[in-house]
């Protein structure tokens, strides 16, 4: 509740022309926006352009922000839209056939059950990247960002059933892609 009131104060201060309020907003949410963009784009690490785009859009539209939702949610919405646009524009995250990932699978038979080496992480990243955007988004928002169902529905403008369907399908795709890996880990 304190966070919400502080967000409102920052937005009001920015509306009155106080640039330091925007600096505060950037300082508070830049890391979260960058993390979300990084996950949505498949961990490219360099998400500077996306973060800049997000905050430029926020700077332009913050005076129109009505406060219907949290500022964080609003920034996340902008981030999701920017990532979609970025993907469409660059075509970086094309769906990769699962067969192409199979030769890269290299399991360390001597490792512990919970230990996942770098190659395993790369396998997971490739599997996430290979998913369509609608599944990747729900996976990222639910399992990595840890958002609630209602907030995800609000961000993606979908209802709960659609969210559940997408989550189920996303999990199935991940299971299919990481089948051998899950057998080993289990």
């Amino acid at each position: 509740m304190a966070k919400v009131s502080e967000e409102k104060i920052l937005v009001e201060r920015f509306g009155r022309g106080d640039d330091s309020a925007f600096d505060r907003i950037v300082a508070r949410y830049a890391a979260e926006v960058a993390a979300l963009a990084n996950r949505l784009l498949g961990w490219p690490q360099d998400v500077d352009d996306i973060v800049q785009d997000v905050f430029m859009a926020a700077f332009t539209g913050l005076r129109k922000f009505r406060g219907d939702c949290r500022l964080r949610t609003w920034l996340f919405t902008i981030t999701i839209n920017k990532c979609r646009r970025h993907r469409r524009h660059l075509g970086r995250l094309r769906s990769v056939p699962i067969d192409e990932m199979a030769p890269n699978l290299c399991l360390n038979e001597h490792a512990e059950m919970v230990a996942i080496d770098t190659e395993t992480f790369a396998q997971v990243r490739r599997a996430v990247r290979a998913m369509p955007a609608r599944y990747r988004e729900v996976v990222v928002l639910r399992y990595l960002q840890g958002l609630e169902t209602a907030e995800i529905c609000r961000l993606l403008r979908i209802n709960t059933n659609t969210l559940n369907v997408r989550l189920n399908r996303a999990r199935k795709r991940l299971k299919d892609a990481l089948g051998e890996l899950t057998e080993v880990t289990s």
């Binding site: 640039d19 330091s20 925007f22 600096d23 950037v26 300082a27 830049a30 890391a31 960058a34 993390a35 963009a37 990084n38 996950r39 961990w43 690490q45 360099d46 998400v47 500077d48 973060v51 800049q52 905050f55 700077f59 996942i116 770098t118 395993t120 992480f121 997971v124 990243r125 996430v128 996976v139 399992y143 990595l144 999990r171 991940l174 299971k175 990481l178 899950t182 880990t185 289990s186």
Partner: peptide, 23 residues
């Protein structure tokens, strides 16, 4: 398990790189 795997992968990827912005 999927959640744990994804979070581990995310942690292993590290923090993203971005420049600090000001108004």
């Amino acid at each position: 398990q999927i959640k744990e795997l994804l979070q581990s992968t995310d942690q292993a990827a590290g923090l993203p790189v971005f420049a600090r912005l000001s108004a």
